[in-house]
């Protein structure tokens, strides 16, 4: 059996809003194995976005442990967390979150500016990634000149530039029509099956053609069932 790449161990996240304490996560336990394709589902307010933030090292838990590749990240400093985000995790967002002033190519290699040195190798790799997602003819276009599906494909290429182990996708098809959405899911399926990437996808959509391994349902800040 392959080892766990992500382990969320009794994690609590409490937000202090003025006088009220909001418990977004209440003892969450999730284990995800290397190479798995996992879907996290739940109604809004269930804590699935917070779960996404925890796995993505975008936020730290109030209580509990998060192990990424066996390493506890819940107590790491800001700069160490940034390093982990840059090297181990690739993000895909519902709203694409591309840099509007940069071209598709520049968007793809942008993460490398903060980590490795951007050089001709990186740029070559960025071009290959764009080719992989079928955008080799659009590399110099700005996001505003691309369709929604094309933008999401640029975002997928960007998530792969530092060769991460985990790809975290937050409603990646939420802003796309169903046919374009299918295409995106197909790319994610390929990344999982061919490139052996671990994929964690947060979504509330029922009909997905994803060839996933598991669905984790979250409700009231806890795992409801698997």
């Amino acid at each position: 059996m392959s080892k766990n790449i992500i382990e969320i161990d009794n994690v609590w996240k409490v937000y202090q809003m003025e006088e009220v304490k909001v418990e977004a996560l209440r003892g969450l336990n999730i284990k995800i194995k290397k190479g798995e394709f996992v879907i996290i589902q739940g109604p809004s307010g269930s804590g699935k976005s917070t779960t996404f933030n925890m796995i993505g090292c975008l936020d730290i838990p109030t209580k509990g442990k998060i192990l990424l590749d066996g390493k506890d990240i819940s107590k790491l400093s800001e700069s160490n967390l940034a390093n982990i985000r840059g090297k181990k995790i690739g993000f895909i967002f519902q709203t694409f979150n591309l840099m509007p002033s940069l071209s598709a190519l520049e968007n793809v290699y942008m993460p490398s500016i903060f980590h490795s040195n951007t050089n001709s190798e990186t740029i070559k790799k960025a071009k290959e990634l764009l080719e992989k997602v079928g955008l080799s003819h659009r590399i110099n276009h700005k996001p505003s000149e691309l369709s929604g599906g094309e933008r999401q494909r640029v975002a997928i290429a960007r998530s792969l530039i530092n060769d991460p182990e985990v790809i975290l996708a937050d409603e990646p098809t939420g802003n796309l029509d169903s046919k374009t959405g299918e295409n995106i899911i197909k790319i994610l399926n390929d990344l999982n099956k061919k490139d052996k990437k671990t994929i964690v996808m947060v979504t509330h959509e029922k009909l997905i053609s994803a060839r996933y391994d598991r669905v984790i349902r979250i409700k009231d800040g806890k795992v409801e069932n698997e």
Binding site: A82, K87, F91, N97, F114
Partner: peptide, 15 residues
């Protein structure tokens, strides 16, 4: 939002 994106993809505060 762009700052958020840059941080998400690995930019440190110092960057």
């Amino acid at each position: 939002k762009e700052i958020g994106v840059m941080k998400a993809v690995g930019a440190r505060n110092s960057h």
